[in-house]
Design a protein around this nucleic acid. Structure first.
Lengths: 264, 264
DNA sequence: CGCTACATTGATGATTGTCAACAAGTGTGG
DNA sequence: CCACACTTGTTGACAATCATCAATGTAGCG
């Protein structure tokens, strides 16, 4: 799967870059727009047990990631969407730990991990990007653990809705009207609740006038009320650092020397 | 709070190591045994909001790590013990997200992060170690999320006991008799339960003859029963890759050229 | 010795899971 | 085009788990 650069690079861990000589001192990650992959609705991008070789960045579409425990239980661990990084869970063991499934027809950038490693080795920026992608996953998990152990169902659903709203806002969509791509069961699994509980609470929120639901179409009508239910402050979302996709949907890959030049 | 090395290193992120020049072409991580730090019982190794500058590896002692949410809730996210890596949560933002508190008088290796970065940049092994430390944290979080959302109280406590047993075994202690360092409340917080529930279940397990409890002294008497309760297979623990401490309690830092030489 | 923190146990109730019925939407094939 | 199966979502009734409140016991520590 990884390009021809892969094995050549693994062999010589440090050293100067080898293939077509780079114009500047540092080879950028690659022309990323060439390396894409289509994933059709319902298809898995990768599955638990697959050998790990590449990272992915979502370019179009929505996904769910599923972790399964030793005893065979399956849980939704996240809903990756545009600009999210996928595949980090495979770095540790060399095999993916999660299934990642597309809700829609989707498209991802494919980043052979060997190239990412090289990039990280040769540029301070690359190193930072890779590390942050990993570290952000950690903080995200911690946040979610807190939700799962310390919040009541009402809080969880409110937090979920606000999180989805915030993520849509960041992508330039409306934060108050959007379509959920996942089923109530997916939401329940993600939040550690039964699907009936999710459904009931959505109905309840609607009766109270906080939201409007019709199937998977959601409109958030009363953010202050949802914030109150969630127990969080209005601005309590973690800051976004160094977005991975530019507004045009291209990968931002920054060379080392310059101070923030965006490559494409 | 972090030692004197911290700010000096933050200032010069890359560059060659500063103190005594390294003999070989690749500077090993450092003479690690010199960089240690004592933490007294009840002291915090670092706290949420502290500027991140160093990683730590536990050499002696037991800790708890605490995450706090935006709304002020606090949860125990883990019980680091010997050979565990601490401080990874600060990489993302540059500030620590957790408090880490010592249960006993403890001692940690101090790894200035700038040196870790350099090590990771210059050696394939270093890169792998850092990445794996991060990635393992991710898989650990996923496992814990599964526990928090999908397991019943009885399961959670059984899993907790088996996990503690396994970790003690790996450190060369008895896996069937050990002392819990944390309070019932800490356990409850970690497992997403109330302290009374933990206490009740421990008593219950004892009545059934699965364990023997007296305060914090625990003896596991019937592993098959606990495995059954936990819903896991006997061997369901993730494999250990490349231990960070050797049997003598020294950091294993491997230079790039050799194929597994242990430094000290 | 008494204070304090920690642990155990019981009684009670709230939250949420479970079971079940039904409605609405979607796609398939006759 | 309609009947049909199938998935998803909603709502209700009920039960179980676990949290809460409270009382008591115990161990460490000045």
């Amino acid at each position: 799967m990884s390009g021809p650069a892969a094995k050549a690079l693994r062999a010589r861990p440090v050293a100067s870059a080898d293939p077509p000589a780079a114009p500047s001192s540092v080879t950028p990650l690659k022309p990323p727009n060439r390396m894409r992959r289509q994933v059709r609705r319902g298809e898995t991008l990768f599955g638990a047990g697959d050998t790990f070789g590449t990272l992915f960045v979502v370019r179009v579409g929505f996904f769910k990631s599923l972790a399964s425990s030793a005893n065979g239980q399956v849980q939704v661990t996240g809903f990756p969407m545009v600009a999210d990084v996928l595949g980090l869970d495979g770095i540790d063991t060399g095999f993916h730990q999660c299934d990642v499934v597309a809700f829609d027809n989707a498209e991802v950038f494919v980043l052979p991990f060997a190239e990412c490693e090289q990039w990280a080795r040769e540029t301070a920026h690359g190193q930072r990007m890779l590390r942050r992608a990993l570290a952000r996953e950690i903080t995200r998990s911690h946040d979610h653990m807190l939700l799962l152990s310390a919040a009541r169902a009402e809080q969880r659903v409110a937090i979920f809705l606000l999180d989805m709203a915030e993520r849509h806002r960041r992508l330039g969509d409306s934060r108050s009207r959007f379509a959920l791509r996942m089923t109530r069961q997916d939401i329940g699994s993600y939040l550690g609740l039964q699907l009936e509980t999710v459904s009931r609470l959505l109905s309840h929120f609607q009766r109270e006038g906080f939201i409007q639901v019709q199937g998977r179409e959601i409109a958030l009508l009363d953010f202050p009320a949802l914030w109150r239910l969630s127990g969080h402050a209005p601005d309590s979302h973690r800051p976004m650092v160094e977005p991975i996709l530019d507004p045009q949907g291209n990968l931002t890959v920054v060379a080392d020397g310059g101070s923030g030049l965006t490559h494409m």
